[in-house]
């Protein structure tokens, strides 16, 4: 079995064959080993790793967090992948929280780095900034509303 892999946005490939594993990274690093897997315990070259799933695409290995995805190469059809975003940029909440203030109004011109919305979680306020200069196309955030991580707050174009 061969799978495409991205680890912390670096791509690679993993080949699993019986009890053997080969991991090849785009930078040329290669790991080859017999493996043993039992629950959350992985043994590679005699070393012990504890592997646990985290939130979303996170996997934790011996206390370190990796953002990792595995694809079956047969599922990757041409045309999939990066979508063209026509210069529209969606600004999403980086953490779940409550919208405290909306700092801009629709149609307003904004600078790169300008504050758009203030979200509060766990007694800390976080200002969501515009990633680019442009015009506020849409505001979805409402003051006092509770938002989830990744929820779109503002669209800048």
């Amino acid at each position: 079995m061969t799978r495409q892999v991205t680890v912390n946005s670096r791509s690679g490939r993993i080949e699993i064959n019986g009890s053997r594993l080969r991991y090849v990274r785009e930078d040329g690093v290669v790991i080859e080993s017999e493996y043993s897997l039992e629950g959350a315990s992985v043994l590679l070259n005699g070393r012990s790793y504890r592997v646990n799933k985290g939130a979303g695409k996170e996997m934790w290995v011996n206390g370190r967090r990796f953002s990792i995805e595995v694809f079956d190469p047969r599922d990757l059809r041409p045309g999939q992948g990066a979508t063209v975003n026509h210069g529209r940029q969606e600004i999403a909440a980086s953490m779940p929280g409550k919208v405290i203030r909306v700092l801009v109004s629709p149609g307003e011109l904004v600078e790169e780095g300008q504050g758009l919305v203030v979200v509060e979680a766990m007694k800390m306020q976080n200002e969501m900034k515009s990633p680019k200069a442009g015009r506020v196309a849409e505001i979805r955030a409402r003051p006092d509303a509770t938002v989830g991580a990744g929820e779109i707050l503002v669209v800048v174009e």
Binding site: V5, V7, I14, L21, Y23, A40, L44, V51
Partner: peptide, 12 residues
């Protein structure tokens, strides 16, 4: 990279 390989193995 070995830790990455362990994570990729479990996920795959």
């Amino acid at each position: 990279p070995e830790a990455e390989a362990a994570a990729a193995l479990v996920l795959a």
